[in-house]
């Protein structure tokens, strides 16, 4: 196969008329240590994008910059044709970017239903009412176990259930883009498969774009439309998921498969 996608200049973001999230030339630092180097990335509407990479590649850092938890040194982040560069997290979620952060970050001593309710915190009163009625129904259909545990403290849930709750809480904010930081971490292979299927379904049913950051490349590629590989803070590969799946060379070079 030709590697035309790989040889395209790194600074040019993938072009598309309906791009939802555009990350242009973003660099970020922890103190003096550079964690992201001129990262360019695009997520289109109704698309699942996977960012793959090993530990320390900068995957979590990338999500932190997108959700406003970490400021960037240079570059530009645009969501829905509006700049969200340097916006604090509580403003970014109101633009429609929800996140399932690393380690789930549930409100451990609060009940499952309170965690879901707090997911709607960024909404207006009438939107909240709609979400609590319609979307929680949908979330319970996807994850029936949550419904049976509504009054239970969220820290007493199993790892998989906590991941479902974190996902549910993020969905309650009526997002247009959902970012997930290693949702497969700590889940059994069977649950990972299950979770990925859910993500695909959620993206299709709710019209939510998904930006998925994963170490588990195989699981992520299966549901992704487009794949980026992040290595030491740099995007070293960008291609459609189909191409990546088809190319053994790419898989062995970048994904250690």
């Amino acid at each position: 196969m030709t590697d035309s996608q790989e040889s395209e200049p790194k600074k040019v973001a993938r072009q598309s008329g309906k791009s939802l999230l555009v990350v242009e030339d973003v660099s970020a630092f922890y103190g003096d240590a550079q964690a992201l180097k001129n990262v360019c990335l695009t997520v289109n509407s109704n698309e699942i994008v996977a960012v793959l990479g090993s530990n320390g590649a900068g995957k979590t850092t990338l999500l932190k910059t997108l959700t406003g938890l970490l400021g960037i040194r240079s570059g530009k982040i645009t969501f829905n044709n509006e700049s969200i560069t340097d916006m604090p997290p509580d403003k970014i979620i109101r633009k429609g970017v929800a996140s399932v952060p690393e380690g789930r970050q549930l409100f451990g001593t609060m009940s499952v239903s309170d965690n879901l309710l707090l997911g709607t915190y960024s909404l207006t009163k009438s939107e909240r009412k709609d979400m609590l009625e319609a979307r929680s129904e949908m979330i319970f259909k996807l994850f029936p176990v949550l419904k049976s545990r509504l009054q239970q403290q969220s820290e007493t849930l199993s790892g998989g259930e906590q991941q479902m709750l974190a996902l549910g809480r993020a969905l309650m904010s009526k997002p247009r883009l959902l970012t997930l930081d290693e949702p497969s971490l700590g889940l059994s292979p069977l649950l990972v498969k299950e979770m990925m299927k859910m993500l695909k379904l959620i993206s299709r049913e709710l019209g939510v774009s998904i930006l998925l950051v994963e170490q588990n490349a195989r699981a992520a590629i299966k549901i992704a439309d487009y794949v980026y590989v992040l290595e030491r803070g740099e995007i070293t590969l960008r291609n459609t998921a189909e191409e990546v799946m088809a190319s053994e060379r790419i898989q062995s070079a970048y994904l250690g498969a």
């Binding site: 997290p89 952060p101 970050q105 915190y121």
Partner: peptide
């Protein structure tokens, strides 16, 4: 109350609270 619950949530986990839209 939602506000009170959000306050409790912020005391449990400030980062998660800011991610759901709380101005800590």
């Amino acid at each position: 109350t939602l506000f009170g619950k959000a306050l409790r949530a912020s005391s449990i986990n400030q980062i998660a609270a800011s991610l759901i839209g709380v101005d800590v």
